[in-house]
Amino acid sequence: MDAERRAWLTLALTPGLGPVGLLKLIGAFGSAGVALGARRAQLAPHIGEEAADALIAGAAKERVEAAEAWLDGTQGAFLLTLLDDDYPAQLAETHGPPPLLFARGRRELLGFPKLAVVGSRNATPQGLDNARAFSRELAKAGYSIVSGLASGIDAAAHEGALAAPASTIAVIGTGIDRIYPARNRELGLRLAEHGLILSEFPLGTGALAHNFPRRNRIIAGLSVGCLVVEASVESGSLITARLAAEAGREVLAIPGSIHNPQSRGCHRLIKDGAKLVETVDDVLAEVGRAPAPLAHIAPEKTETRPQAVERGEGLAEPPLLAAMGYDPVDVDTLSVRLKLTAGEVYAMLLELELEGCVAGLPGGRFQRLS
């Protein structure tokens, strides 16, 4: 690591300095290296006495050494600074862009046009299918799909996009050496190899609630638009959508059943002016066609399959209702989701229909009523 890059790292990891203080020092002294060599009296007017004391005392020394060891020992790891040529222009144009990001994976994805796909952690099976399908087709169309590696819609969006050349970028709210939630660890490993992971937080940073809105601003800032697949009215995805709108980016939402609480956030966005999306072409009509992906950088990988719903685990309702979601669905689809035979699914549907929970529809499809 050259001296200037190490100086950026030192400033970024100094306690009490933060992104705003770092950028103030770069602006005042012209470079990180010069700022790092300044006297306390020169530093304090820009960042305050406490941060100046921390910088002079070398308070970031252990953090810097740990970061250098991680960079040297981790395949695909690199630092991205605001002055790098491939720092995404979309993000640089936002208010208060992160001056330094820890990164792991395919650096060339920084050059792809990007589209955020976000939504509920407690998604319905239909919502997960929509997230995978839209992300897969949008990534095939040349957009790198940006999301937050959370459970639910985020994870499904990453899974859907991984097989395409444009792939997917995860912006996480922890240190880049920690994957949260733990259930997404295997997905994180695939992202590190075939996609890209970004974090502005120091190594070892745990899952702290106040860090996730900061993560959301990067997701919104990287992207030309934000597609919300499913979201309750309290969902953090609405924060990402609001940040995208404030940055002048397109906001799009997929509508759902009026009976689905995970669709109400999308309906609110649509009422507030978000584009109602039914197809991938609807998305592309708003954000434009992306340049064709470069075939020679396409990673080798296999298509990921949707995960089946685990019967009964953590659900307060019958597993068949959870697997149905709120949209019409046929028996074959339910058989795949539940890993049951068609006969078993029919028997369960009949029982729920007698209880008034399910209604049969033309074409052999069924829909939940509550």
Rank of each mutant, 00 (worst) to 15 (best):
S120D: 12
G160Y: 02
L227A: 10
L340A: 13
A150H: 06
L243A: 06
H46T: 06
N130R: 09
I169F: 01
H296Y: 13
G288M: 02
L100W: 08
A7C: 06
I56K: 13
A141R: 13
L43K: 06
A292W: 05
E351D: 15
A220N: 03
E137D: 14
L350P: 01
G16C: 02
L352C: 00
A323V: 11
T304Q: 13
E234H: 14
V171L: 07
L17M: 12
F366V: 14
E303R: 15
S235G: 15
G96Y: 01
S167K: 07
L79Y: 04
P299G: 14
G173I: 06
A103V: 11
E186M: 09
P306G: 07
I218Y: 02
L109R: 07
V329E: 04
V229T: 01
D177S: 14
V277E: 03
S223V: 07
E250N: 03
A66F: 01
L191D: 05
K140N: 09
P328W: 03
G195E: 11
H210M: 01
L350S: 15
V251R: 02
E246R: 11
R107I: 09
V233A: 09
S144L: 06
L71A: 11
L128D: 04
A209Q: 09
L128H: 13
A166Y: 11
P113H: 03
E65A: 14
H259S: 08
A123Q: 08
V358C: 10
L22F: 04
A347R: 13
L100R: 10
K114A: 15
E234S: 15
L115I: 05
L203V: 11
G148Q: 02
